[in-house]
Design a protein around this nucleic acid. Structure first.
Length: 572
RNA sequence: GCGCCCGUAGCUCAACUGGACAGAGCGUUGGCCUCCGGAGCCAAAGGUUGUGGGUUCGACCCCCGCCGGGCGCACCA
C-alpha cells in the first residue's frame, strides 16, 4: 500500500510531466504544521536549474496536480514551496488501511539484499563492558529494521578470540591459576591471571618471552594450550550469553577471529601474487599510492616476524562473507577510532575487485558524568552485566513505589523490561555519531524522551482495553471505520500513518534515532488525544473509532519499540 | 605535523543530509484530577547554532581561516 508521502510523490511526478517539466526536488513531511502536512520544493529546485522564478513555476505546476482525493487544494507559499493539507476523509481512509495492513503500512524493500551485520564483537578473557553497549544495541536494532523491511540478515558476532593476549592468559593459567576461584567466578579469575601476567611481563622480560612462546605453541596447534584456550573461550561465552539474554540479542553466526586463522597465509599470498601487496622492511604491506588520503598510511598484513595481525583477519573475514555467505553488503557496527582501519581494508577489497557494499557504521562513545570515557571509580571499565542489572534494580524500586500491589514475579518482569529498555533507548534515541553522557537519573526518568514514557503510553492503552473487556466484552474484530471529528484524533491518526514513512528512513544513514523520536512524538500525540477525547465514555460512533485509534497506537508503539529491541509490559 | 569526528537554550539532546520564524526533554515559573492510570496534559520564560569570512533565492548543514575538545596515524587487537 502507498503512504501519503509515496502517493503524493507519484502525483507530483505526474503533474510535472503534464506541465512539461522534468522530475525534480522531493516531497517530504511538512517541516511545520502551519504549512500543512506535506510539502515539495520541486519548484525551487527547478527554478535554480532553469534560472526561472520559483514561485511562477510553482503556480504553473499546481493546476496539474491531481490530488483532490487526498489533499485540500495545494498552496504556493514562501519562496515557492507547494504545500499539501490532508483531507480528514483521506486520513480516515488511510488509517483504516494501516489498521488492516499486517505490516502497519510499512512497504517492503524493492531491492532485498543479503546483509552481514558485524556487531558486538567482545573480546574473550575480558568481561563485556559499557564500551560494547552501543555496538550491540545499535547493530541489533539495525538488524531488526533490515529484517522487517525484507532484507536477509546474518548477524555475525566477530569475537576477539585470537589475539596476542592469549600468550599471557595461557602462561598465567599454567603458573598462577587458582582453581577454586575459577569455579566461583571463572571470568574474574581469568581476568586476574591475565592482568597479573601482564604486569609481570612489563617488569620481567623472561615472563614476556614465556608468554610469547605460549602463543606460538597455541598457534601451532599445541594440544595442551588449545585445551586451555577452549576453556577460556567457553567461560567467556557464558558471560556473553548472560548479557545477550538480558539484552534479548541473538546472533545467527559467531565466527570469531580464530575461525579465520588457517586462511591468513593464503590471503597474504594472494595479495602478493596479485601485486596488491609488497614486501617492505621485512613486512608484507599494502600501499595506497593513488589515494591521497591513504598515501602515507600503509597497511601491514604480515609482520616482520611472520605473524599476522587483525587486518589480515578482517580481509579473510570479508572473503568468507562474500564467497561463502554470499553477502551483498557487510555492515560493521564498530567505534569511530577504527575509521582509518576500515578505510584501508575497504580499499584493499576494492582493489581486488569486490563489489560488495561495505559500510563502517561508526558511533560515538559512552561518557561518564565527567565527560570522560565511562569508568568505575577505580578507573576500570564498567562491566555491562552489572550495569544492566543495576538498571533493573532501579526500575524495580520505582515500581515498588508506584504500583506496590503487583505480584513479585510480575514486578521483576516489568523491572527488566523497563530497566533494559531504558538503557537501550537512551542509546538509540541519540544521533549515532555523537558521544553521549550516561546518566541513570535521566535514563530512568518516567517522563521526557525515555523508554518508560513510551512504555507507559502503551500500558495506558492496554488498561483501556482491559476495562473495555470488563464493561461490554469489547472485541477488536468488530471494528467499524474511523470517524475523526476532533483535532487531537486527526493529529494522532496522521502520526500513525507516518510510521510507514519513518521506518525505511532508519536504514538511510543508519539512524534508529529517527524512529525513536517518531515514537516519542506518537506517544505525545496519544497522550494529548487521551486527555481531550474520552474513549470508553463517549457515544458511538466516536467510541468505536477511538478504541480503534487506541488499538492502532498500541500496535505501532509495540512494533516500533520491537524494532529497537525494546519490550513493552502490559502493566507497570 | 597530517587526517577524521565534535562544538546548538543553564543541563542532556533534535533538526528528515541545503528549505520556511532552529525544536524537544530536564530544570525554573504558572495552570489542569466529581473524568478511561497524574508514570499524564496545557502554557510561559530561556538562542547572534564556538568564532570570522565565503558560496545562493535560502546555511546548524557546503567551502576557507581561526578558537576549544576527543580520537587516529608501520608490525596491539
Amino acid at each position: 500500500m502507498d503512504t501519503f508521502q509515496s502517493l503524493l510523490a507519484k502525483k507530483l511526478s505526474d503533474a510535472l510531466a503534464r506541465a512539461g517539466l522534468p522530475d525534480a526536488g522531493e516531497l517530504t513531511q511538512a517541516t511545520d504544521p502551519r504549512f500543512g502536512d506535506y510539502q515539495t520544493n520541486a519548484a525551487l529546485v527547478l527554478g535554480k536549474q532553469r534560472g526561472e522564478n520559483p514561485r511562477a513555476l510553482a503556480k504553473k505546476i499546481v493546476p496539474h496536480l491531481d490530488v483532490d482525493d487526498v489533499s485540500e487544494p495545494p498552496a504556493v507559499a514562501g519562496a515557492g514551496f507547494i504545500n499539501f493539507k490532508l483531507r480528514p476523509a483521506a486520513i480516515e481512509k488511510q488509517a483504516l488501511d494501516v489498521l488492516r495492513n499486517g505490516r502497519l503500512g510499512v512497504p517492503e524493500t524493492e531491492s532485498p539484499q543479503r546483509i552481514v551485520i558485524d556487531f558486538g564483537s567482545p573480546n574473550v578473557a575480558k568481561p563485556m563492558h559499557v564500551g560494547h553497549i552501543r555496538s550491540t544495541v545499535l547493530g541489533d536494532a539495525l538488524a531488526r529494521v533490515a529484517v522487517f523491511l525484507g532484507h536477509e540478515v546474518i548477524r555475525d558476532n566477530h569475537i576477539g578470540d585470537w589475539g596476542t593476549q592469549f600468550g599471557m592468559v595461557i602462561w598465567g593459567w599454567k603458573n598462577l591459576l587458582d582453581r577454586k576461584a575459577l569455579q566461583r567466578d571463572p571470568l574474574a579469575e581469568i581476568v586476574r591471571i591475565y592482568k597479573q601476567t601482564n604486569e609481570g611481563a612489563s617488569r620481567d622480560p623472561e615472563v614476556r618471552e614465556a608468554g610469547r612462546q605460549e602463543l606460538v605453541k597455541l598457534q601451532a596447534g599445541d594440544k595442551e594450550n588449545t585445551d586451555i584456550w577452549n576453556e577460556c573461550v567457553a567461560f567467556s561465552m557464558q558471560d556473553f550469553e548472560r548479557v545477550y539474554k538480558l539484552l534479548d540479542v541473538h546472533y545467527d553466526l559467531q565466527c570469531g577471529e580464530s575461525f579465520y586463522h588457517d586462511w591468513l597465509p593464503g590471503v597474504v599470498d594472494r595479495l602478493l601474487k596479485a601485486g596488491v601487496a609488497e614486501i617492505s622492511e621485512g613486512a608484507v604491506v599494502v600501499f595506497f599510492r593513488d589515494d591521497p588520503e591513504l598515501t602515507d598510511k600503509p597497511l601491514i598484513i604480515r609482520k616482520r616476524d611472520g605473524g599476522f595481525n587483525y587486518a589480515t583477519t578482517d580481509l579473510a573475514t570479508i572473503d568468507y562473507r562474500v564467497n561463502d555467505l554470499k553477502a551483498d553488503a557487510i555492515w560493521y557496527v564498530v567505534g569511530a577510532p577504527q575509521t582509518l582501519h576500515f578505510k584501508q581494508i575497504f580499499a584493499v577489497t576494492r582493489r581486488e575487485g569486490y563489489s560488495t557494499d561495505l559500510r563502517h557504521i561508526v558511533f560515538g562513545s559512552v561518557l561518564g558524568e565527567d565527560r570522560k570515557l565511562m569508568k568505575t571509580r577505580s578507573g576500570e571499565n564498567v562491566p555491562l552485566r552489572e550495569l544492566l542489572e543495576e538498571a533493573c534494580r532501579r526500575a524495580r524500586k520505582i515500581i515498588d513505589e508506584k504500583n506496590p500491589d503487583l505480584g513479585e514475579e510480575e514486578k521483576n518482569d516489568i523491572a527488566e523490561k523497563i530497566g533494559i529498555g531504558a538503557v537501550k533507548y537512551a542509546d538509540l534515541s541519540q544521533y549515532r555519531t555523537t558521544d553521549y553522557i550516561f546518566s541513570w537519573d535521566k535514563m530512568l526518568l518516567l517522563h521526557g524522551n525515555t523508554a518508560p514514557y513510551l512504555q507507559n503510553a502503551y500500558v495506558r492503552i492496554r488498561s483501556i482495553f482491559r476495562k473495555a473487556g470488563e464493561l461490554d466484552g469489547f472485541k477488536l474484530s468488530s471494528l467499524p471505520s474511523f470517524k475523526l471529528s476532533e483535532l487531537a484524533e486527526r493529529n494522532l491518526a496522521k502520526r500513525l500513518c507516518q510510521f510507514a514513512e519513518i521506518v525505511p528512513q532508519v536504514l538511510t544513514g543508519f539512524r534508529p534515532n529517527i524512529l525513536a523520536n517518531y515514537l516519542f512524538e506518537l506517544a505525545n500525540s496519544f497522550h494529548a488525544f487521551y486527555e481531550s477525547c474520552p474513549v470508553l465514555k463517549s457515544d458511538e460512533p466516536a467510541r468505536s473509532s477511538r478504541l480503534a485509534l487506541s488499538d492502532l497506537t498500541a500496535r505501532v508503539l509495540q512494533r516500533g519499540l520491537d524494532l529497537l529491541g525494546i519490550k513493552v509490559p502490559e502493566r507497570m
